[in-house]
Design a protein around this nucleic acid. Structure first.
Length: 648
DNA sequence: TCACGGAATATTTTT
DNA sequence: TATTCCGTGA
């Protein structure tokens, strides 16, 4: 039976997809296997609703990345018309930000709160960590990034610092009190200075909706239809938010795949998707099991891999794609032999007509590809490593932004330190003195004028003062202020980095971005929340002649993507699954899902490669078995080969 | 108190 | 690869 909606997409949908698209009212759980057309289903549903006259701004589409949201709405607009672009869509965080800006005062916040991105949060913790006197007594007190991980996990799992430390960081148990002390300071500092880190956005929104019935009613009435993508990666707070937001209309559709839940280390809880039917009584479940991506031999293997998983919604993916060759597990003599194999195989496939950009090498951790990167360089094979560079997090960009942040919020300590430490002969101590003077005299950025400085500092301080005077003297457009800062910063940049030409170009890009804004606060918020997914393209545009580049990626960053041929390296037991995950069943299960995600990225060819042996530095154990997730799989599904290092 | 250099070290990271 | 940490000397 086919229904007709008079819109041109329905022929492209299979029966299960169509059911999901046409689903009317109430809670709906869509279990969407890898490559089963989940995005298309969501997209079509949005288009269908809008087409039937539902107001776009009463539809809410929540995703984890800004890119995913944009893409879906654009595709929906393409199917129907541009009403779809008006659908409220975005990440949980940007949604929270938007709501909180409106109602901040209800939770005792200034609507002009600033957002701390990860480096900012770490920097703040770094300062507080040093300030905490007792830290110096301990030799191996956790570093700032570890502290932030602990704090964040405690928030995202809604459990106490104590529980997180005992459960996930037992080796730090003796520092518990001091860790808790730093946490308290961190929290207080954020409150005092109207900062929110990423987690706070969700926490405060949740708090607002829970405690303010009026606002909760207003918001949950506004959204008639709510859809959530990648539901298996939501954490406790996000699940609560979904529940609160859908309170009035109960038209909540979540889409996800429990087998692809790989973010528990960030507090994601795949139980959310398992428990959904209990939390929302009357839930309909629809399974999307037809895979449009991989050939059958790959699906047969990946089905077998995930079959062994403990808890899951059962589903069996199938495809109508014919042919295809059996995936292979390859033992290489050494790490370098592994790299050589990959390089040679890629060259071979490339000769057969597979473009480089249709091949990917995936691995568990970023540094696993170092040796391969060198081999690729030697053979002059162009590649792009995903998840690597973060435009907004690079030092020079942060430097420039810090100057603007100080103008917006003169009590922003992290940014002040950042700005001041750039000046010659100013170190942490001097920076602290200056900051305290500013705070004491409530002197905003003019505060730097009043302190008496040693003559060795004078020149640098004077330059900074000139900059602030210039920006103060007349109202400047965002980009003009940015240009002034860049002009001030440029000599420092040249002094500090020998690759300054490239970085200077980045700064020019930043100015270009600024030109789109007429308000510095909005600009800064966007940079923290929705940083431009910089195609640092111009870095590579010099060799545009060969636009096609091989992709190197961690498995996490590869989620949702697909390639003609996929190589998974380091499938050595102890690397993948990683050593740290062996002690706990849940962790091991997540590793299994991770390898599953990696393997299901492949359309035609799939290779697992591992070096014959490697020492684990942490434990001193010799790793010499292939991944336990592959070892027990029979030869019918997985071809097992050893290659000789001398072959290459 | 700061700057410099060398060494160590690294899960995974949509916000 | 790249970032960060620590010790040393000025």
């Amino acid at each position: 039976m086919k229904l007709n909606f008079g819109i041109p997409f329905q022929e492209s949908l299979n029966e299960a997809q169509l059911k999901a698209v046409c689903f009317e009212e109430g809670p709906l759980l869509v279990i969407a296997g890898a490559g089963s057309g989940k995005t298309q289903t969501l997209t079509c549903r949005v288009a269908r609703l809008v087409n039937e006259g539902i107001l776009p701004d009463s539809i809410l589409l929540l995703t984890f990345t800004r890119k995913a949201a944009q893409e879906m709405l654009q595709r929906a607009a393409h199917l129907l018309d541009n009403r779809c672009e008006k659908v409220s869509g975005g990440t949980f965080h940007s949604f929270a930000n938007a709501v909180l800006r409106k109602y901040a005062e209800r939770i005792g916040f200034d609507s002009g709160f600033s957002i701390l991105d990860r480096p900012d949060a770490e920097a703040l913790i770094g300062i507080l960590r040093k300030e905490t006197a007792s830290v110096s007594r301990y030799r191996s007190f956790p570093q700032k990034h570890t502290l932030l991980n602990i704090f964040s996990k405690s928030v995202n799992k809604s459990s106490s610092i104590e529980d997180v430390v005992f459960y996930d960081y037992p080796h730090l148990a003796s520092y518990l009190e001091v860790i808790a002390e730093v946490y308290k300071k961190y929290k207080k500092h954020k409150e005092d200075h109207h900062f929110m880190d990423y987690d706070d956005l969700l926490v405060h929104l949740c708090h607002l909706l829970k405690n303010d019935v009026g606002i909760r009613d207003r918001i949950s009435s506004q959204y008639q239809y709510i859809m959530v993508d990648e539901y298996q990666d939501t954490n406790r707070i996000q699940a609560d938010l979904v529940k609160l937001l859908s309170e009035k209309n109960k038209n909540i559709m979540v889409v996800g795949d429990d087998s692809q839940s790989i973010y528990s280390f960030r507090g994601a809880n795949f139980k959310n998707i398992m428990n959904f039917p209990e939390v929302f009584p009357g839930t309909r479940i629809i399974r999307l099991e037809e895979n449009y991506r991989s050939v059958q031999p790959i699906l047969t293997l990946t089905n077998a891999m995930i079959e062994q998983a403990g808890e899951k919604y059962t589903k069996t993916l199938f495809t109508r794609k014919k042919g295809g060759s059996k995936p292979a597990l390859i033992q290489a003599g050494s790490e370098n032999s592994q790299s050589r194999f990959v390089v040679e195989k890629i060259k071979e496939l490339n000769r057969q007509g597979v473009p480089l950009c249709q091949m990917a090498v995936l691995f568990r951790a970023g540094f696993h590809s170092f040796d391969l990167e060198m081999e690729l360089g030697r053979d002059q094979i162009p590649f792009i490593k995903m998840g690597g560079f973060k435009f907004m997090e690079s030092a020079h960009i942060k430097d420039v932004l810090a100057h603007l942040k100080v103008l917006v919020n003169p009590y922003d300590r992290i940014s002040w330190y950042r700005v001041l430490l750039l000046i010659d002969n100013i170190g942490p101590k001097t920076a602290q003195n200056i900051y305290e003077t500013i705070l004491k005299e409530k002197a905003r950025h003019q505060g730097i004028f009043s302190e008496k400085f040693r003559s060795s500092n004078k020149k640098g301080i004077d330059r900074l003062r000139d900059l602030f005077l210039k920006i103060d003297s007349k109202p400047l457009a965002v980009a003009e202020a940015g240009e002034a800062v860049v002009r001030y910063y440029s000599p420092i940049l040249k002094e500090k980095y020998d690759d300054h030409p490239k970085r200077t170009r980045d700064l020019e890009q930043l100015i270009t971005i600024m030109e789109r804004y007429n308000n510095i606060e909005t600009f800064l918020t966007d940079m923290a929340l929705e940083p431009p997914s910089i195609s640092m393209d111009d870095t590579f545009s010099e060799d545009v002649s060969n636009g096609s580049r091989l992709v190197l990626s961690t498995v996490h960053s590869a989620k949702g993507l697909e390639w003609h041929s996929v190589f998974i390296i380091w499938t050595l037991d102890g690397r993948f699954p990683s050593m740290q995950a062996l002690h706990r069943v849940e962790d091991l299960e997540e590793e299994r899902r991770l390898l599953y995600v990696a393997a299901t990225r492949a359309r035609e060819n799939l290779f697992f490669i591992y070096p014959m042996q490697a020492y684990d530095r942490g434990t001193g154990i010799l790793l010499n078995r292939p991944s336990r997730f592959l070892d027990r799989i029979s030869e019918d599904m997985l071809k097992k080969d050893a290659i000789d290092i001398n072959l290459f």
